[in-house]
Amino acid sequence: MPRTPDDSPCPAYGVRPARRVSVDPQGPVLIEGPVDIVLDDGTVARSDRFTVAICTCRRSRTYPWCDTSHRRRERTTPPPEDRNP
């Protein structure tokens, strides 16, 4: 197979470099972009970002892209005290 000067497969011969995918059980799937995502209805969502976060919980309002809806919402400050006697 022909190779480029940096010893990677030459894309001109139909060999595409592998994409790195990171799977986090508590979060999204991270994929080195750009990516095309084919949805259930056949439409294609495209992102040209360097790294793309793909939603796996389906809670995202921007599905298929992750908007961190999978995170538990916890209060960082205590609730205000009841000021009524």
Rank of each mutant, 00 (worst) to 15 (best):
residue 1 M to V: 12
residue 1 M to T: 09
residue 1 M to N: 09
residue 2 P to Q: 07
residue 3 R to T: 14
residue 4 T to D: 08
residue 5 P to M: 06
residue 6 D to N: 10
residue 6 D to I: 03
residue 7 D to G: 02
residue 7 D to Q: 11
residue 8 S to G: 03
residue 9 P to L: 08
residue 11 P to K: 05
residue 12 A to W: 02
residue 13 Y to I: 15
residue 14 G to I: 13
residue 14 G to Q: 11
residue 15 V to M: 05
residue 16 R to Y: 03
residue 18 A to M: 12
residue 19 R to V: 11
residue 20 R to G: 01
residue 21 V to G: 00
residue 21 V to Y: 00
residue 21 V to D: 01
residue 21 V to L: 04
residue 23 V to C: 06
residue 23 V to D: 08
residue 25 P to V: 11
residue 25 P to E: 13
residue 25 P to T: 10
residue 25 P to G: 08
residue 26 Q to T: 13
residue 27 G to P: 07
residue 27 G to F: 00
residue 29 V to E: 02
residue 30 L to S: 11
residue 31 I to F: 00
residue 33 G to F: 00
residue 34 P to Q: 05
residue 34 P to G: 06
residue 34 P to S: 05
residue 34 P to H: 02
residue 35 V to S: 04
residue 35 V to W: 00
residue 36 D to S: 15
residue 37 I to C: 05
residue 37 I to M: 09
residue 37 I to E: 02
residue 39 L to Y: 06
residue 39 L to N: 12
residue 40 D to K: 12
residue 40 D to R: 14
residue 42 G to K: 03
residue 42 G to I: 04
residue 43 T to G: 03
residue 45 A to V: 11
residue 46 R to F: 04
residue 46 R to S: 13
residue 46 R to D: 04
residue 47 S to Y: 01
residue 47 S to N: 07
residue 47 S to D: 07
residue 48 D to E: 11
residue 48 D to W: 01
residue 49 R to Y: 01
residue 50 F to K: 10
residue 50 F to P: 00
residue 50 F to H: 10
residue 51 T to C: 06
residue 54 I to T: 08
residue 54 I to C: 06
residue 56 T to V: 11
residue 57 C to G: 08
residue 58 R to H: 12
residue 58 R to D: 11
residue 59 R to F: 08
residue 59 R to L: 15
residue 60 S to V: 06
residue 61 R to K: 14
residue 61 R to L: 13
residue 61 R to A: 14
residue 62 T to V: 03
residue 62 T to F: 00
residue 63 Y to R: 03
residue 64 P to M: 03
residue 65 W to A: 11
residue 66 C to W: 00
residue 68 T to Q: 12
residue 71 R to I: 14
residue 71 R to T: 13
residue 72 R to C: 09
residue 73 R to D: 14
residue 74 E to R: 12
residue 74 E to K: 11
residue 74 E to G: 06
residue 75 R to I: 06
residue 76 T to M: 14
residue 76 T to D: 13
residue 76 T to Y: 10
residue 77 T to L: 15
residue 78 P to H: 03
residue 79 P to T: 08
residue 80 P to T: 10
residue 80 P to S: 10
residue 81 E to D: 13
residue 81 E to L: 12
residue 82 D to W: 09
residue 83 R to M: 08
residue 83 R to F: 05
residue 84 N to Y: 13
residue 85 P to C: 05
